[in-house]
Amino acid sequence: MLIGKTDRVEFCGTMKYSVEINGAKRTVDIDGETPLLWVLRDTLDLKGTKFGCGAAQCGACTVHMNGHPIRACQTPIASVGDARITTIEAIGDSKVGKHVQEAWIELDVPQCGYCQAGQIMSATALLTRNPAPTDHDINVAMSGNVCRCATYTRIRAAIKHAAKAGSI
């Protein structure tokens, strides 16, 4: 006989969670352990937030919770509560987010582009808190986001570009 029965221990079980995503209340009926990432992607059809590692090691799933960058792959939906969640789809609604997106376009940052939603979320959080970041500030804020194509040179330049745009 094998272990691994079906009487698994449930933390929460399926229930209704009402969460604020990009300014709108969304209700999902789902197991509370489900990471926000999969609620966004599979349940709410917001596919801009990406899956890269499932272990908070790559940053591809970065979203904002009350303006702070968090990894959606390690955020159980049950823990979201009434926090404000912002994703790449709506980050351009903020002035800083818009500047960051424009800088990314202006400097032609992406190669494959897969990590860039997460990079933009981290960069926007940084510039919102710190409008004129130093290289060290950029290193600290951006080192949780892996770019496999290694477009770091341009990401750094684009953050500085967006900072300049923000200061005008």
Binding site: G59, H68, I70, Q74, A141
Partner: peptide, 9 residues
């Protein structure tokens, strides 16, 4: 901030 905060907040 770099390694822990995104999960442990």
């Amino acid at each position: 901030a770099g390694q822990c905060q995104s999960c442990h907040k």
